[in-house]
């Protein structure tokens, strides 16, 4: 709790990171209150051929798409998809990667070596390429995008947690609790994990931005949620047929992706600046 307050106080001081927080808050509010804020909530599914491809005006703030749906309303509902994919996929990656990293870092032996080699092999392929292969095999749907992303992103956390665990495991407090007879599980969860949580938080925040970009790319390639889902990447992909006349079509979804990813990157950078000296202060490392 004390640490949480410390982070919040520092974040308020760091204007750039604060901007990141504001952007993320905007995403969350947009997702939750999409039906309230949207001007044409039913347009996510309905279509109105009469209103096809209209320029932005006072009624359709960001213009309309090929189905005559209001792009502004679709963007708001698209925020739900974005946030669901990012949170669930990253959550799953953390849940898979952190325990693997902890176990591999805590024990020394062939099993640890093997776990890390497996994650190295996953890291040896560009994430999006692997995600494309998995998503394509599974078929286009949001669930499968999440599956594909979790299956390709977990090694980042495994690697990180492994390295951090190895680096603090000779610390006095870890050795002391082992000497006092604490079980390995207890040492890992009660002593190692809290001390490496800062790095995990920073990595997770920056990972959110990357995941959102990858998810949008999958959507753009037609591997995401099927039409008429208001997924932002898919909306940009649809717009290509109508360029350059319908210049507004791709503009709003592109900016939406940009701002959200930017938000997570700025917050991640800010958190790293805040947490790094703290890591150095609280955990003394030999070399």
């Amino acid at each position: 709790m004390e640490m949480f307050r410390f982070i919040v106080r520092k974040l308020v001081e760091d204007r750039v990171a604060l901007l990141g927080v504001i952007l993320i808050m905007a995403l969350i509010i947009a997702a939750i209150a999409a039906p309230v804020f949207s001007t044409f909530p039913e347009d996510v599914a309905d279509f109105h051929p009469k209103n096809r491809l209209l320029e932005p005006d006072s009624m359709f703030w960001f213009g309309t798409d090929r189905m005559g749906s209001d792009i502004y309303s679709r963007i708001l509902f698209g925020a739900r998809i974005t946030i669901t994919i990012a949170v669930v996929a990253i959550g799953a990656s953390v849940l898979i990667g952190v325990p693997i990293g902890l176990v591999a870092g805590y024990y020394h032996g062939w099993f640890s070596e093997m776990l890390m080699r497996v994650s190295d092999i996953f890291l040896a392929v560009p994430q999006i390429v692997l995600a494309i292969a998995i998503a394509q095999t599974l078929g286009p749907s949001i669930e499968n995008v999440i599956l594909a992303l979790s299956a390709t992103y977990w090694p980042f956390w495994a690697r990180l947690v492994y390295a951090e665990t190895r680096s603090i495991q000779n610390e006095v407090f870890v050795e002391a609790s082992i000497a006092l007879g604490a079980s390995p599980f207890r040492v890992m969860v009660m002593h190692v994990l809290p001390n490496i949580s800062s790095s995990i938080i920073v990595r997770t925040t920056i990972g959110m931005g990357g995941t959102i970009l990858t998810a949008a790319t999958l959507g753009f390639l037609g591997l995401g949620a099927p039409a008429p889902s208001p997924e932002w990447g898919r909306m940009i992909s649809e717009s290509r047929e109508f360029l350059p006349e319908a210049w507004w079509y791709a503009t709003a979804p592109g900016i939406a992706i940009f701002l959200v990813v930017m938000g997570f990157n700025l917050l991640g950078d800010g958190l790293r600046d805040i947490l790094d000296p703290r890591i150095r202060r609280s955990v003394h490392r030999d070399k």
Binding site: L213, T217, G233, I236, F258, L259, N265
Partner: peptide, 18 residues
């Protein structure tokens, strides 16, 4: 640089084309 890491390259490509 922060923008460069946040921009979706397929969107940036389309903007450049436009």
């Amino acid at each position: 640089t922060v923008s460069g890491l946040a921009i979706a390259s397929f969107w940036f490509a389309i903007l450049l084309q436009l």
